[in-house]
């Protein structure tokens, strides 16, 4: 019961924090925080399949793209769509799609989840690296599909004028919900079964666990939240195009979850802040700097060099990520000599 009280207080104070940020911070800081929030949603859900369940997957860019496009098509009013689609007229279904913000992003999530379920049937029937190969290919397929079906996606030009409903209240709250949901999954029989699949699949089967079902559950859950995050991204950026959803997006998320610790949700959250934040905080390195009255000259890309070095140093000292595969609460609990036994 003590845990529940603590959790309620933590959730309420986070909500208050989100509200205060949205109210008082300037738009530049807020845009960074929005970015962090969206990437937190994506990284947390990616960690469920990759870290907790241990199935090496490279899917996020595909599912984020699906979520972003579906949400965008639901949000943009029909008359703007007719004006925007330059190559061909939009398909009837595209014109008919319209929904308020929340149903629109949830639809993006459900669309991704549906595709994930279809993918899991061939992929999880066999073991090995097939998931990585299939999901990598899937990301390319989605992008090529988006480019080559202008009646649905406006082709390579992408969609713009997406209503910007996604403020920090939405993004922050959904990131919080994602975090809580992920922790609830991890600390349940499903999360334990996912970890069992990661540790030793044969032993998990010998415990009566239907590993196909568990892997599919993890994959579909990841896909849902990636789709949701994609929808938020579309509305936050107000413009999307196929080029945003390349493998680099997946790669960035992979860096985040490996740095945070595969299987650790709190680690992922912290590393999202560090990675996404330092991309911004290190921006001064790109500019002309004055060191001992000498001008260094502007070196665009310098921050990426420094960022990479920082990343390498961090991985040297924390080889299994910031928190390994454990949650911050458990680590603190153990340090205090408390046996949480959750």
């Amino acid at each position: 019961m003590k845990g529940t009280v603590f959790k309620t207080i933590a959730i309420l104070s986070t909500l208050l924090f989100i509200y205060l940020c949205d109210r008082f911070l300037d738009s530049y800081t807020l845009s960074i925080m929005n970015n962090i929030g969206i990437f937190a949603i994506l990284a947390l859900s990616y960690n469920l399949i990759n870290g907790v369940t241990g199935q090496f997957s490279l899917e996020p860019n595909g599912f984020v793209a699906i979520g972003a496009y579906v949400t965008a098509l639901f949000l943009i009013p029909a008359d703007i769509k007719s004006d925007m689609f330059a190559l061909v007229d939009p398909a009837e279904t595209v014109l008919a799609m319209h929904a308020p913000f929340l149903p629109a992003i949830v639809a993006g999530g459900i669309a991704s989840m549906f595709i994930a379920l279809l993918l899991s049937f061939p992929v999880f029937r066999v073991r090995g690296d097939y998931l990585a190969i299939v999901t990598l290919g899937f990301g390319f397929i989605i992008r090529i599909f988006a480019i080559n079906n202008p009646a649905y996606t406006n082709g390579a030009m992408g969609l713009n004028d997406i209503p910007d409903n996604a403020d920090f209240l939405w993004i922050g709250s959904i990131a919080l919900i994602t975090f809580v949901v992920m922790l609830h999954i991890v600390y349940s029989r499903y999360g334990r079964a996912m970890k069992a699949v990661r540790d030793d699949e044969d032993a998990a089967i010998a415990m009566g666990i239907d590993t196909f079902k568990i892997k599919t559950t993890a994959f579909a859950t990841s896909a849902f939240f990636e789709g949701l995050g994609g929808g938020l991204l579309a509305s936050f950026l107000t413009t999307i195009s196929p080029d945003q959803f390349t493998f680099m997006l997946t790669f960035q998320l992979l860096i985040i979850i490996v740095l945070g610790g595969l299987g650790s949700m709190s680690g992922t959250l912290l590393s999202t802040v560090l990675v996404m934040g330092s991309m911004e905080w290190l921006r001064f390195l790109d500019d002309d700097m004055v060191i001992f009255a000498m001008h260094t000259g502007a070196h665009p890309g310098m921050r990426m060099v420094v960022f990479s070095i920082l990343l390498i140093v961090m991985m040297l000292f924390a080889r299994r990520g910031l928190f390994g595969d454990r949650e911050i609460m458990d680590i603190i609990g153990e340090k205090l000599g408390k046996r949480s036994g959750r």
Partner: peptide, 20 residues
């Protein structure tokens, strides 16, 4: 073949998965 990242209690709880 224990689940090495987990506590002893959690290992037993995996055995109880289907009854949970």
């Amino acid at each position: 073949r224990l689940f090495k990242s987990m506590s002893v209690l959690e290992n037993i709880l995996i055995g109880l998965h289907e009854q949970t």
